[in-house]
């Protein structure tokens, strides 16, 4: 599984990454976590509000930090 976090390094993006890594660790799910900061890629996904989470090429969420419950739902 490939998880991309879109955003240009604001506090919320960092928090998003932390939450995702925490859930991955707890559930033992293997995934590649990438931070995407270049605008071209962000815009390609049609995302205009960051942070956003893309899992295997699909935008799951944009504009807010996901909570652990949401992340669990996506990765299972």
């Amino acid at each position: 599984m490939k998880i991309e976090i879109l955003g240009t390094g604001c506090v919320k993006c960092k928090k998003t990454k932390e939450n995702i890594e925490k859930v991955l660790k707890e559930t033992g799910v293997e995934a590649e976590v990438l931070k995407v900061e270049d605008f071209e890629t962000i815009m390609k996904y049609g995302v205009m509000v960051t942070p956003a989470v893309v899992i295997d090429g699909e935008v799951k969420l944009a504009g807010k930090v996901p909570d652990e419950k949401e992340i669990r739902k996506w990765i299972n």
Binding site: G9, C10, C13, F39, M43, V47, M48, V49, T50, G63
Partner: peptide, 17 residues
């Protein structure tokens, strides 16, 4: 609108596009 300065660039590009 929600506005976090970190979203201003994607929004700007989105509007222009």
């Amino acid at each position: 609108s929600p506005f976090c300065s970190c979203s201003s660039v994607p929004l700007f590009i989105g509007f222009v596009e």
